[in-house]
Design a protein around this nucleic acid. Sequence first.
RNA 1: GGGCGCGUAGCUCAGUUGGUUAGAGCGCACGGUUCACAUCCGUGAGGUCGAUGGUUCGAGUCCAUUCGCGCCCACCA
Length: 899
Amino acid sequence: MLPKTYDFKAAEARLYQFWEENGYFKPSNDPNLPEHDPTKKPYVISIPPPNVTGILHLGHVLFVTLEDLMIRHQRMKGVPTLWVPGTDHAGIATQLQVEMKLKDQGTSREEVGREKFLEETWQWKKEHGGVIVEQIRRLGASCDWSRERFTLDEGLSRAVREAFVHLYEKGLIYRGPRLINWSPSLQTAVSDLEVEHSEENGKLYYFKYQLAENPEVFIPIATTRPETILADTAVAVHPDDDRYKHFIGKKVLVPILGREIPVIGDEYVSVEFGTGALKITPGHDPNDYEIGLRHNLDLLSMLDKKARVTEVGGPYQGQDRFEARKNLWQDMKTAGLVIKEEDYLHQVPRAQRGGEIIEPMISTQWFVEIAPLAEKALKAVKEEDIEIIPERFKKVYYNWMENIHDWCISRQLWWGHRIPVWYCDDCSELTVAREDPSSCQACGSNNIHQDPDVLDTWFSSALWPFSTLGWPDETPDLKYFFPTTMMETGYDILFFWVARMIMFSLELTGIAPFNIIYLHGLVLDEHGQKMSKSKGNVINPIDVMNDMGTDAVRFTMLVGSTPGVNTNLSLQKVEANRNFANKIWNAGRFVLGNLEKAPAAPENDPDWTLADSWIWSRMQDLVRNVDRLFNNHQYGEAGRYIYDFFWGEYADWYLEAAKQQIIEGGDRAFYTIETLIKIFDLSMRLLHPFTPFVTEELWQHLKEAVQISPFKTRIPDWPEALMISSWPEPRPIENWEKDKVKSFELIQDIVRSIRNLRAEKNIKPGKLIPANLVAGDFTSMLKEELGSLATLAQLDSDQVTIVAKLDEIPQGQIGLVAGPIEIYLPLSGLVDLKEERKRLSTELEELKGQIKRLEDLLASPFAQKAPEAVVNKEKEKLANYQETAGTLQVQINNLEEIT
RNA sequence: GGGCGCGUAGCUCAGUUGGUUAGAGCGCACGGUUCACAUCCGUGAGGUCGAUGGUUCGAGUCCAUUCGCGCCCACCA
């Protein structure tokens, strides 16, 4: 006998090892087959690589369990499956962690130098990189770990270089000075996507731009960043603005500095907004940059890399950007150039990582020319080479692709893929090469040095689905497994990652990297709040797994998530699913316990009971529904169906009926146990992708027990593990099954109405009571089912009568109606006739309401317009109600006669 | 400025192609300890599906308007 409590920790550790050692995580789970079966289309997922030095959070748990569910499902369907795991070097994030460590040691990145710093970072990776991988294994992820990759691996680094050089040679990568987003504290450029705009209270500063020819006359200007005045190279007004258009062509004086700059006319300027005139700072504002290009304006950089004012700022040189703002404004006040300040709510650009205010500035960086790539990527989704789930994200994708800007890919960091470009110190030509060159391509000089910058982390991530399979080499893996099948990831990285994978794959491999994009939502706390340390609502998945088991956590994530919608997670939910795992465990114990006590195999053919047929039919229905839901990627809904079946039908009803059938002994007991086993087996299969551990554990015990039991010959060839067993195939339900289901539902009705009355009358659950049933056409069926009926309703089977018809209503008994069945319970002492009459009358009133409703409905145009089947359903219902109402009326009349 | 999602029982959420007295878990009330499970069993109370209008024989489910919450994108100083 299995222990009462499921020791999930031991099972989890043992089973994972068992699976992996047997090679089940490999693309072919049949050891006799070659690894690549060229006749079968494989199902492939590449894991969204988590940051190498990260620790597991609930977001990881969601995607790992979802992907594991998909992979396990396909594997059981007999499809060769490959799930490629790996980690991402996460440039900025990792570098910052190591820098922090150095700071603690009293040193810094600059102090130790590039080489030593990289050594330190690799060391850090070695120490911390294993953590997340270990945690992913704990979740049960059936990844092929022999194919684990890291974005800075030799192979992937080669892919990065190949991609860079390819794009460069095609003219899709260029270098040049452009206005970029600069992060002063990180000291690097970041891409547009890494800038977040947050709405904040600031000030709008109004001041005067004096005319050079007559300082008495001025153009009023408003700005949110007065310090940028120092780098103004024009003032712009709308060419049709009567207030200002006569200034066009004249010169104005930059406040304090006194530089003369032109007044220009440009339609970009909005007449209504602010003062209707605009200061132009091409060096520090994206719009102004565009205007500057149109008008050939000078371009001044007033900030250095630490956001301190340069020599352009004259007297303010060396001051921090915010200090300069304050000082300049003060000086302008003194000089009488200030008009006013207003409170102002506006969007402030902040760094996604670190949160400091980003400065747009001119800098020489590397860029990917994105338009040609985006065009192809747009087409791939429009022409449905790639499907997006949920579909609404297509629109988001299109919108982004249609408005995309060139991608700044160089980062002034050390941890990452160094840009494969070398500059010649002699001829200043550059060499772009796949392998480290020893000399300049142009002049042959050996005086060359490599670009110090590294690539945006997302550059290597964008190659992930094919670089992990061996690209640029035509490896067998690449040929067989690429393109991949499913890209499952969070909607928050649709642009960062998914879009770029599509663009790069189409350009570099010529095909879309995956067929389906499944986007999940974010994991929030139970009230839909983001989890954060400061709010104290963070749930650590490892703790919860230790407490309640991995299966409970997995089931919670899977059932609670709908594609593209955020998931609110609470410990209560996990607890509920821990209870479900416990339920599975105990149902398994029950099946096993009976299996051990099973009688010898009978000579006779099976004689199935109603309950047997019913549970089979319900199982078929479940298989069909689950199949349908999986095909529609409604995994959570599928889990819910299985849960309801297993707990609400198999455990609550069939197991209880089975108890009685087993007591009957002999053939009946044998076939009941067989049904218990078979339905349990199918349930474990359906449940396995959701809760792999408890299902495998029980299934292994079951398999073992079956093998030494009389069922051995009747239960064919189970494989060596549930994980690689076959997925139940749906088949259509037959008519006789529908009848069986209806009959059993009648039994359930009777049982419920008796239980209901027992609760109402406070009859102890254990107390057996007598009953008299009037069953009409169902008489023989009920007689047949008396055993289970008595067990389920706690009737004294020696004191139950079942007759087809009754001439006279029994006196002094409680009357009940369940569909076409009349029930009389001779419970002397419990019957207060008055009370009974009241109860029956209330019931009748309710029923009459229903009858009226249905009569009205059937008299309405509904009867003509609705499909026949729907109408018939209602007619049938009405007939049933009327019958019941008739019975109730008779019972009530009878009571009245007595009193 | 554009786009999207959500609003269903006290709480957190499900709800097939619209089909006709709306489901679950948790919580709550009442009753249950031998024989799979108190991480359990049985029974019950509790929503008319944010609001309004429309399409339809029929709407939580489709359309329009509206209110509330959240998110994404965007160069109005």
